[in-house]
Structures are given as structure tokens and as C-alpha cells.
Amino acid sequence: MEPRELARGTGLSVHEITVSFAGITALEHVSVDVAPGEVLGVIGPNGAGKTTLFNVICGFVAPQSGALRWRGEPLGRIRPDRLAALRIARTLQGVGLFPHLTVLENVTVGATRFRRAGLGSALLGLPRSDRDERALRERARAALAQLGCENIDERLPGTLPYAVQKRVALARALVCEPELLLLDEPAGGLDARELSDLAKLVASLGSSVAVMLVEHHMDFVTSVCDRVVVLDFGRVIADDVPRAIQQDPHVLEAYLGRDADTGDGLGAEARATDARG
């Protein structure tokens, strides 16, 4: 139950976070940590606060109390547009690609943190900004190639199969070379073969990347996660290795014991989505 202590200066540490929307508590004293090289699963019934937790880490939702530390530094109030520079990347539920931008453009936007040319030279179209642009496109192509998405640079996302769109979304998150990767339902809508590809990819991310993933697909979670945190009604009810989680009586109760009241916390999360506009 107790979150393990992290070595100073590594990974993400979420400490005693509380979030409430209009009187409904979405997260209550939630503490979670994830170390480099570790894959942490976050599971829980609908409305348990999983997405709210991601939104707190990304700065979309300000917690009423609690603190976040990233690589040993307090994160304070996070500006979402600073995340990429902090090497934190997030994928969204579904695919979340820009529908009106090509695949290559989508991934290039993900590489924004590598831009060097300032506003002035970009507006004037100076050679420096041109070189910058080419380097970014090369990075984007490399990220797409890493995920086996070749020869679709100029396609619009809507014209591609769903599984390919999800890969492009992953390439867009990986192109900024994150050290913390937040995956919101990465397995949703994928078939068995695509799931095993995704599991291989997550496993191949290496020892410098901490991964946190929200997922409903339990087989996927047990196969890729080193550790699983279970949220229920905004509280952490379990934090252990996947095998132990499957036996945990609290978890079994949360998933099986009641079926009528999952709607409760969902209201809070829906509100969170509204608040983001």
C-alpha cells in the first residue's frame, strides 16, 4: 500500500494529491511514483480518477493540495506547453491526432521542443529556420520509422486504419525523446497481434524511460507492467506487482463487488473534461 521511496533525483513522484470539482472529490490523497525503466499501470473502474491523475501531471487540472516531483525537482504549477521540454509526453484516449495535418506534420509538431529558430527568423524565413525545419522533419521521419509507419508521411490521419493512427500518435509522443511517457488507454481498439506489437514496443523503451499507462485491458496490463496502482473513488486501494493485484481482495471488491455505483465518480471526471474545454 505505501508508495515506495524513490531515489532522489529520478522518476516522477506524486505525493498526497487531492483534487475536487464542485464538491466532488476526484482524487483524495493520492500518492504514486514511477522510476526510470519502470512500467506502471494505473487501473480502476470508470470514474476512479485515472484520467484526472494524468491531467494533474500534465497541468490541465490544478490540485487543491499535494505536490509533484519530477527528476527530483518540484513541478509546482505545470504549464502544459513546458511538458515536452521537461521530457514528459502523453498520448490521449483514442488517437488525438490533428485531423487536418498530415502524418508527418502531426509528428513534427511533437518535435516542437527541438526548435531553435526564434519567432523573428521563422517569420522572415531565414536559412537558419529552414535548416531547423528540415532537422525536425528528419526526427519525425525517424520516429515514424521506429514504429513501422513508413510511406504514409503525406496521408491525413482519417484515411488510415485505426491501429496505424495509434502508432502515429505514439510516434508523436516519442519524437520528443521523453523520459516519462503517459499512455492513456494505449490498447483500446487494438487486436491481439497489434497488442503484442505494442507490448514489445513498450518493453523496448529502455531503462531511461518511465512509463505510466491507464488501461482497462487487464491481460495487457499484466503482461507489460512491472507494477500496478489501483484507483477507486479517487483513492489508491492497491499498489503492487500485477500478480499480487489480481489476488487483492480490495481490488476484487472494487471491480466485482458493486456494479451499480460506477456512475458516481464519472460525473467528476466528466466535469474535469468540461473544465478543460
Binding site: D81, G96, F98, E105, V109, E133, L136
Partner: peptide, 25 residues
């Protein structure tokens, strides 16, 4: 044809997503 234009197009239609990717919306 410019990176600035690309960021403007991204920010215009999905500001929150663009922000997550590091665009100063």
C-alpha cells in the same frame, strides 16, 4: 511551408493537444 505555420495550424484547431506537444499556443 514553415514550422511556425505548422504550430499555428496545430494550435488553431486543437489548442490543448498542441500545448501538450510543446507549442506555445
Amino acid at each position: 511551408a514553415t514550422g511556425l505555420g505548422l504550430q499555428m495550424r496545430a494550435a488553431a484547431f486543437q489548442p490543448e493537444v498542441a500545448r501538450l506537444l510543446g507549442v506555445r499556443v
